[in-house]
Amino acid sequence: MKEIFLLCLILSIGFILVVAGLVHKKLLREQHAILWLIFGAGMIVLSTNSMWLDRIASLLEVQYPPALLFFIGIMVCLVLILYLTVLVSKLSGRVVRLTQEVGILKYEEDKRE
C-alpha cells in the first residue's frame, strides 16, 4: 500500500471519530451526522481500494485518476453546501415567524397587565 493511501485511511478514520465525538457532545444532530458518516465511509473505501479509483478513471477515460477524486470531492462539497443553504433558508423562515409570535405575545401580555 502506498504511503499516501495509508495517510488517507488514517485521516478518514480520524474524520469519522471527530463526527462521532460531535454527535456525542450534541454539537451535531444525528440527522446531519449520517451525511458526514457516509462521506467518511466513502473516503475509507476509496483509500483502501485504490484500484477502484484507477478502474473508474480508466472507464471514464480520465488520464489522471486523482483528478477524478478531486472532481468527486468538489461535487460532494457543492451538494453539501446547497443542502446547508436550504437548511439556513428554512431556519430563517422559522426565526421570522418566532420573532413575530414573540412580538404579538409580548403585546398581549402587556395589555393584560
Binding site: 421570522v96 420573532t99 413575530q100 412580538g103 403585546y107
Partner: peptide, 25 residues
Amino acid sequence: AEVISLPQNLGIGGAVQTGYLFAFR
C-alpha cells in the same frame, strides 16, 4: 397607537406580516 415591538429587526416584510398576523388573530 397600539405598539408591537419586535425583539429584533426583521425588515419591512417581516414587520408588515406581523401586522397581518395580528389582524387575522
